[in-house]
């Protein structure tokens, strides 16, 4: 299987439908096993191009490595993490998502796969996090991921926050409303059906 060519990023955003979930399933090494229709629609790849590929084919070069380091540390422990991630589509455009993970185990309690569900990231949160990511990325480029990591934990320490409380702060939401954002798909489905119905009615 050929490694996919890395697209050249362009400074144009893909706007996400806030009611839809971008879902993918990966193995413990981050190899994509399945992705839903909305995932494919947004990233612009075909299933045959993306399945069996590492998830970082859609990683945007503006993303600091330290965020993915933290993300995988949490995932290997079977913990969820809400991260704001800038992704790279096949045509070079970008889209911001907020992540949510579900870990799947086999009968012997070993992790076998992850279900990643992502939704549109709130605009005000992107504004805040972009500044931080720029700083982290610059440190990574001039120094190393380890130095960037130290800086990030120093920053959290100074603010007296954990990563989780920090991200809730950035998002300006409570833990419970964040859970609802990902779990309340019934309402979303109903709404999108209604929209479809109205669209049909007025088209």
């Amino acid at each position: 299987m050929n490694r996919l060519d890395f697209p050249t990023p362009i400074d144009r955003e893909i706007k996400l439908d806030p009611s839809l979930i971008i879902m993918s399933k990966t193995n413990t090494k981050g190899i994509i096993e399945y992705a839903n229709d909305y995932f494919m629609e947004i990233c612009g790849y075909e299933e045959y191009e993306l399945m069996g590929q590492p998830h970082n084919v859609i990683r945007h070069p503006d993303m600091p490595k330290v965020i993915f380091k933290l993300l995988w540390e949490r995932l290997h422990k079977g913990e969820n993490i809400h991260a704001l991630v800038k992704n790279l589509a096949k045509d070079g455009r970008y889209y911001w998502v907020l992540t949510n993970f579900e870990t799947k185990y086999n009968e012997s309690g070993e992790i076998i796969s992850y279900y990643a569900r992502r939704k549109a990231a709130p605009e005000n949160a992107i504004f805040t996090i972009e500044k931080l990511y720029k700083t982290l990325l610059a440190i990574e480029k001039n120094q190393s991921t380890e130095v960037a990591e130290k800086y990030f934990y120093g920053l959290l320490e100074e603010k007296g926050q954990t990563y989780d409380s920090f991200i809730l702060n950035v998002l300006n939401v409570s833990q419970s409303s964040l859970q609802n954002y990902f779990s309340d798909t019934s309402i979303i489905k109903e709404n999108s059906n209604k929209k479809g119905f109205l669209k049909r009615l007025f088209s």
Partner: peptide, 8 residues
């Protein structure tokens, strides 16, 4: 890979 996709 196709099998994994169908399974998912």
């Amino acid at each position: 890979v196709a099998e994994k996709y169908l399974y998912g």
